[in-house]
Amino acid sequence: MDKIGLFFGSETGTTRLVAKKMQKKLGDALCDKPVNVNRCHMDDLLRYNALILGTPSYGEGEIPGKSLGCFEPNWEEFFAQGPAQPDFSGKRIAFFGLGAQERYADRFASSLLPLVEKFRRWGAEIVGDWPTTGYTYQYSAAEVDGRFLGLIIDQRTQSMFTDERLDAWLAQVTPLLQEKLG
């Protein structure tokens, strides 16, 4: 596929909002319209060599889904559709996650970790880590070696930084994702 695929899970619509903002910044020529994972299948992701995947933070570091209390199907239900071991070898993926650092300081944006780990096990190359500077929290499973595994957005308490963070992160990951486009 000659474009970046942009897929997300969402509970309250905030991840969808951020995905739409991101796609608008990238433009239609470079990135397809964002798709909620409750409206697609694994084959839809596998069509792309470059992907951006987003997740809300829900639970205490698990993949969001109905078993954790989500009202709508999310990543958990998407993965349940199968196949159990898709092949993402040769694909490059950048991740973003949402979280509320004040409300959930003890598990801030932790749902990003199991999502990244799953795609890494399936052979994907992961890009787009992000600095922890400017965030205030006690713990995040998404922090590895002093950096987040992807872009973290806190729309609840730091929405004033969303555009700035999106611009900086997209400047970092876009050239890396473009290398994988036909």
Rank of each mutant, 00 (worst) to 15 (best):
R39Q: 13
R39C: 07
H41K: 09
M42V: 08
M42F: 10
M42S: 09
D43A: 05
D43M: 00
D44V: 04
D44K: 06
L45Y: 05
L45C: 06
Y48S: 00
Y48V: 03
Y48K: 01
N49A: 00
N49H: 04
A50I: 02
A50K: 02
L51H: 01
I52D: 01
G54P: 05
G54F: 04
P56E: 04
P56N: 04
P56Y: 02
S57I: 03
Y58D: 07
G59W: 11
G59P: 13
G59Q: 08
E60W: 15
E60S: 11
G61E: 07
G61R: 10
G61K: 09
E62H: 15
E62M: 15
E62S: 15
E62N: 15
I63D: 04
P64S: 15
G65K: 09
G65Y: 08
K66C: 06
K66N: 10
L68C: 15
L68D: 10
L68R: 14
L68G: 12
G69W: 03
G69P: 03
G69R: 07
G69L: 06
C70Q: 09
C70G: 06
C70T: 12
F71L: 12
E72H: 11
P73N: 13
P73E: 14
W75M: 09
W75T: 07
E76P: 12
E76G: 13
E76D: 13
E76W: 14
F78N: 13
F79D: 06
A80Y: 06
A80K: 13
Q81V: 11
Q81I: 06
G82Y: 06
G82D: 07
G82I: 07
G82L: 11
P83H: 11
A84C: 08
Q85R: 09
Q85I: 09
D87P: 04
D87L: 01
F88I: 05
S89I: 05
S89C: 02
G90H: 00
K91V: 01
K91L: 01
K91Q: 02
R92F: 02
I93F: 04
F95I: 03
F96A: 08
F96G: 08
F96D: 06
G97V: 00
G97H: 05
G97E: 00
L98P: 05
L98H: 06
L98R: 01
A100Q: 14
A100C: 14
A100P: 09
A100R: 15
Q101D: 07
Q101A: 09
R103D: 14
R103N: 14
Y104E: 15
Y104C: 10
Y104Q: 12
A105W: 13
A105F: 14
A105T: 13
D106V: 13
R107S: 13
R107Y: 12
F108M: 03
F108V: 07
S110F: 09
S110G: 11
S110W: 03
S111A: 11
L112I: 14
L112Q: 12
L112P: 11
L113G: 11
P114V: 07
L115C: 10
V116E: 01
E117L: 08
K118W: 10
F119S: 05
R121M: 04
R121D: 03
R121A: 04
R121W: 00
W122L: 14
W122M: 08
G123L: 04
G123R: 01
A124R: 01
A124K: 01
A124T: 02
E125R: 03
I126P: 05
V127W: 01
V127D: 02
G128A: 05
G128E: 03
D129H: 08
W130K: 05
W130D: 11
